[in-house]
Amino acid sequence: MKPFTYARPAVASEAVTTLAADPDARFLAGGTNLLDHLKLGVVEPSQLVDVSRVTGTAIEELADGGLRIDAGVPNSDLAADARVRERYPAVAAAILAGASGQLRNMASTGGNLLQRTRCAYFADPTTPCTKRDLSQGCSARGGWARYHAVLGTAADGCIATHPSDLAVALVALDAQVQVLGPDGARTIPIGEFHRLPGDDPTRDTVLAHGDLVTAVDLPATTPAVRNSTYRKVRDRASYAFALVSAAVALEVADGTVVDVRIALGGVAHKPWRATTAEATLRGRPATDDEFRAAIAAELDAAAPVDSPLGGNAFKIPLVTGTVVSTLRALAGGAA
């Protein structure tokens, strides 16, 4: 680990100015992702700007019936909040499906959205990785690609997945991210917050250097959102990242889908809103066959990777099984 200096600003604006002034500085929140990467040599900042005392730890009602979650709210407190549990069950369930009790106590809401991929090559500076260094190739292609993306990828490009469970639920619920940047405050819809790799896989989000996430807003809940959940499939029963996950909200009336939201984790460089599947399902009967057809339409564009060390073609039937069984459960049937 290279030496760095440590700053603990008293207010958010100071944190932003300090960071903006130093291109090699990084914000430090819970540290659960950043410290890991410092030790691995994945990032080598000159300075850490501790934002844990400036980002706030409150969850407040918004005038429109939504909730504002300060960026400093620990993951465990967010999942335990009675309003979140009741009005946004997918959010609570998503957080609880991630990491461990200790990590959730440490991890912040803002840091969670900004955690970086768990791609093993990304985390090993001795192997080439386009996301770490644009001049290098992607080692996951032709390598251990079991956890990698099947949607939104480009030929030869980065096939990393975004690891956050919370972000998947937020994408399904159309949350808004409040950002304070060097030029002032702005709001970014969560669906536009994370990026596909495109021609710059080094960037996970649309944030610029110095942009501080200050809060996440949840819009007023809906019948579908009240009937939402998060389903995560992983190789271990707990304390493991997703192979595939789904945040699903469903409202059914008289056997017909009135409203549905589906966001997928573990399948793309960003949490993947399954808009095609949603559009296909709306107004259709809530049956397994319809669910299956809808997700098949979404997966039409999927491009699994083949690899001697384990490809990820299995994610196609896995996404299908995960989404279908979750929809079935929300529609009132057995999971």
């Binding site: 093993a120 001795t126 192997t127 251990w144 190789d235 029963a237 707990s238 304390y239 060390l309």
Partner: peptide, 21 residues
């Protein structure tokens, strides 16, 4: 990964051992 000659899932997040659950 034979291209690098190393175990690529070389930690407890990549190499799973049974957890309590």
């Amino acid at each position: 990964d034979p291209r690098f000659g190393e175990v690529i899932n070389h930690d407890f997040a990549g190499y799973h051992v049974a957890s309590n659950a």
